[in-house]
Simulated assay, not measured.
Amino acid sequence: MAIRRTPMVILIFLVFISGAQIATADEPVPAPWPHQFHALLFMNYSGDLSMIDLWYDWPNGRNFNIIQEQLGGITYDLEWNNGTSFFYTLDSSKSCRSAQLEVGILRPNWLDGANYLGQQLVNGFHCNVWEKVDFIWYYEDVETKRPVQWIFYTGREAHVMTFEVGAVLEDEKWQAPVYCFNKEKKSLSTEGSLREFRGYKGMAVS
């Protein structure tokens, strides 16, 4: 009798495994970032607030974050796909830090391999939620596939206020000021509203 039951047990096991594989295959995956877009982000880090104009331009290998601190100054975080980065101001201080990093800007598919956590209502939007390497939690609108927010492991929150697919910043605005090239390159500080993304890119090459 045991011999006759064995094929049935195997059949049940195979059906169970197939069902699990189908369920996994049916899980949604995050949409790749558009190759060019402009987003306005409201950042909150334990009450430390800022606004970021994010310009992402993958075809031209560049990423630009214009950071307005609450009741404070504006800093410019300019990154190129060859690893060159500048963090500067345009005020009278003419401050600038530059560095050559090991990796370039985030790829459009940087969320590939993220773990699906289910759905959640976020700021009135019905979102799919993913987590990647215990580093970032990413929330995407179920219907439009646009990002709604992401939260870093540090607790820093990015709330997407606007998301313009295909928007491109004029070429002349991507040029770092001349005083960025008159100083010795230094390591970029871990301060700033997007320091976590630098950490994520560092993990990608470790």
Rank of each mutant, 00 (worst) to 15 (best):
V205P: 10
M161W: 04
W150P: 06
L106S: 12
E143L: 03
V148N: 02
I17D: 02
E102M: 11
N82Y: 03
L54N: 07
A31D: 14
V165N: 14
N60H: 14
D134V: 01
W110L: 11
W137C: 00
A114H: 05
F13N: 03
E79V: 01
K201D: 02
N60T: 10
S189G: 03
V103C: 11
A176M: 15
D112F: 05
I17K: 03
G47L: 11
G199A: 14
P34G: 03
Q119W: 00
N60V: 07
L14A: 12
V178W: 15
Y45K: 00
N63T: 02
K145A: 03
A204M: 15
M1G: 05
T84C: 12
K201N: 05
W174M: 14
E170T: 04
F42D: 04
V148E: 00
H38M: 14
A2I: 06
I67V: 15
L101K: 13
N63I: 01
K185Q: 14
A31I: 06
N109A: 07
Y56E: 06
L49A: 09
E170I: 02
F37K: 06
K132I: 14
S50G: 12
A20G: 03
S206T: 12
I67K: 10
W130M: 03
N182H: 06
K183I: 09
L90D: 11
F197C: 01
L117E: 05
V160N: 03
Q68S: 15
Q149E: 04
S50F: 07
T84E: 15
L49P: 03
T89P: 07
D53R: 02
G192H: 02
V165I: 15
L90N: 11
A31F: 10
H159Q: 04
A204S: 07
P177L: 09
G118D: 09
I67D: 12
K185M: 11
F42V: 00
V178E: 15
M161Y: 08
N182R: 13
W55K: 05
S93N: 00
C127K: 01
I151L: 08
D134Q: 01
R5W: 05
T154V: 00
E79P: 01
A2E: 10
P34E: 04
E69R: 14
A2G: 12
I52Y: 04
N44Q: 02
V168G: 07
P30Y: 10
S93W: 00
P34H: 06
L54T: 07
N182K: 09
W58E: 13
Y116L: 05
R4D: 08
P34K: 04
T89S: 14
Q36N: 12
G155N: 04
F37P: 10
F125V: 04
V133Q: 13
F135N: 09
C96Y: 09
V178T: 15
V168D: 10
S95E: 01
Y200D: 08
Y153P: 03
M43W: 01
F163T: 07
L40S: 05
S95A: 02
Y179K: 07
I66Y: 04
E131G: 09
D91N: 07
N81H: 09
N128A: 13
G72V: 12
Q70Y: 09
E102H: 10
E164C: 06
N123W: 00
H126T: 09
T162V: 13
N60S: 10
L188C: 01
Y138R: 04
E69T: 13
L194E: 14
I17G: 02
D141P: 03
